[in-house]
């Protein structure tokens, strides 16, 4: 085999490897906007954020307001699998704002999230959900 042939074959192999690597690293990212008043459930106020599937990473950026101003509204995230589930609770970094960048412990979890408050209020939430493409 001539040197040129070897170079061309090597190039094609590299191309194939590179394309596979590209496909593997591609993820779909969707951004959701959820807002509204908290719902009163018994003595608790809940802001339901959503239910997502095959989550590999998520970010929550939440702006909220309560009356009276309450600094301890919490963001609850559940990562659910068939054999186990994990929970995470995130607190505000200041009154009116919660930020969480979250990677589930289990790959491609089913994820549910909501806000819990002791007082009535509203929220304006931006959520990005990253899921793997079906390659």
């Amino acid at each position: 085999m001539k040197l040129r042939h070897k170079i061309v074959i090597s190039g094609l192999v590299l191309l194939a490897v590179s394309l596979i690597a590209t496909l593997e690293k591609v993820y779909a990212i969707k951004t959701y906007h959820v807002s509204g008043s908290f719902e009163k459930i018994d003595d608790t106020y809940v802001g339901y954020l959503g239910h997502w599937y095959d989550v590999t990473h998520s970010t929550y950026e939440i702006t909220y307001g309560t009356e009276p101003p309450y600094k301890l509204v919490i963001l609850i995230v559940l990562d659910m699998k068939n054999d186990k589930s994990d929970g995470e609770i995130y607190y505000p970094d200041r009154y009116g704002h919660i930020y969480a960048s979250h990677t589930p412990a289990f790959y491609a979890s089913e994820e549910v999230a909501w806000l819990e408050s002791d007082y009535p209020g509203w929220h304006d939430s931006w959520i990005t959900i990253e899921t793997p493409y079906d390659c």
């Binding site: 970094d93 930020y99 589930p104």
Partner: peptide, 18 residues
């Protein structure tokens, strides 16, 4: 350490068993 590696947040957070 594993939780910190996977999560960024404000001041405090909790990792939970349910």
């Amino acid at each position: 350490q594993d939780f910190l590696r996977r999560n960024k947040f404000g001041l405090i957070a909790e990792f939970c068993d349910i």
